[in-house]
Amino acid sequence: MIRHAAWFGLLLCLGILANPAPALAAPSSGLPGDSVYQLDLPLLDQDGKAMAFASLRGRPRLITMFYSSCPYMCPLIIDTARMTERELDEAQRVKLAVLMVSFDTERDDPAALKALAEKRKIDTGRWTLARTDAGNVRKLAAILGIQYRQLDDGDFNHTSVLILLDAEGRVAARSEVMGKTDPAFVDAVRRVLADGATH
């Protein structure tokens, strides 16, 4: 009994002394431990709509990071994602979603993302351009294995990569081949889309 009370005191005390819980591990029902949706990540899309990262669970998705004023690599990332989609037949393509999250927390507000979507004629029904805050950009990049840093002129050096997530948010494949399709990656996309259909 005394032991019990001491324990209770310990818990209570730690509870009181504890500071607000870090908002990292999101509560999750049956979410795999290695799902990227474990990250409690608030996003704002090109229409200014707020959404939780974990709300994207349930559908296979290509995810990448970019910034809209990027002169060379980022247009190529969009091109490469499109080339990958073109390898799919229509029935498969409609099941695949795309999420692009910006590194550039200063310049990429929803208006800038919207402007890019219009300029590149991006179908925002299936594709989402999104932003978050600087701390969460660092965390998302860490989860996705993306390296980046901002240069003094405001541009970014960054890993250019397409990452395939299955419906549960597990990384199924990644490709750093840019400017042409990567057959192994396209195969992985087909496999994940077919897999999703059987469940």
Binding site: R149, L151, N157
Partner: peptide, 16 residues
């Protein structure tokens, strides 16, 4: 830690 790659500028060329 994930900003510490060394290549000075890889925006438009180079082996990733």
């Amino acid at each position: 830690f994930n900003a510490l790659f060394i290549s000075a500028d890889n925006r438009n060329q180079g082996d990733p």
